[in-house]
């Protein structure tokens, strides 16, 4: 990969900075850069996972289908971040949907090919994993803080949960109040 293209890729996807030009080549060979318009469902809950995504530009919403068929938003993600990375570890189906909230630029990495690099202990794959891992840590630290917050004021939090429960009961037709 020539120096100019390498610099361009790194400017676009800073997560790849620890990788050498040859290693970036290896990742590019199994990836695609996609421009996606606002309002497009990029990941469909229940589908088989074939890719993970680096959100290069724009923002997306993660939503989850409830058993009643109603969809609930779980999180809004802003670039630069990663999504669909849970599929890195197992072949389970997508646990949530992802819809673009703005026009976005996505770096789509083919999972099967990535896992082949991983199985061959290729530095390119592990340097990329090392880049992605802090995002996972950030999400877990966030959950950990929320647990702490809950137990700092359990009564108020319990009351809020109860209120949410009541509101929910009231909003579902045909359910006893």
């Amino acid at each position: 990969m020539d120096a100019k293209l390498y610099a361009k890729v790194l400017a676009l996807v800073p997560l790849l900075k620890p990788l050498s030009p040859d290693e970036v080549d290896e990742i590019m060979a199994i990836s695609k850069l996609l421009k996606v318009r606002k309002g497009v469902k990029v990941v469909e809950e229940g589908d088989e996972a074939e890719a993970m995504y680096i959100l290069v530009e724009g923002s997306v919403q993660v939503t989850k289908m409830l058993p009643g068929g109603e969809s609930t938003p779980l999180a809004d993600l802003k670039a630069p971040t990663v999504f669909g990375e849970m599929a890195l570890i197992d072949r389970e189906r997508r646990s949530a949907s992802v819809v673009t909230l703005t026009d976005t630029v996505l770096f789509q990495v083919n999972l099967q090919a990535f896992n082949e690099l991983r199985a061959r202990y290729r530095p390119a794959a592990f340097k990329m994993l090392r880049s992605i891992a802090p995002t996972l840590c950030g999400r877990l630290r966030g959950l950990n803080d929320r647990i702490g917050e809950f137990f700092k004021n359990p009564e108020a939090n319990l009351a809020e949960l109860e209120q949410q429960f009541l509101n929910r009961q009231l909003s579902v037709p045909g359910k006893p109040r």
Binding site: I89, R118, L136
Partner: peptide, 14 residues
């Protein structure tokens, strides 16, 4: 180790 850690973190998130 990194593989182990990333797998563990992902499982905890899931």
């Amino acid at each position: 180790v990194l593989d182990f850690v990333v797998t563990d973190l992902s499982q905890r998130l899931r």
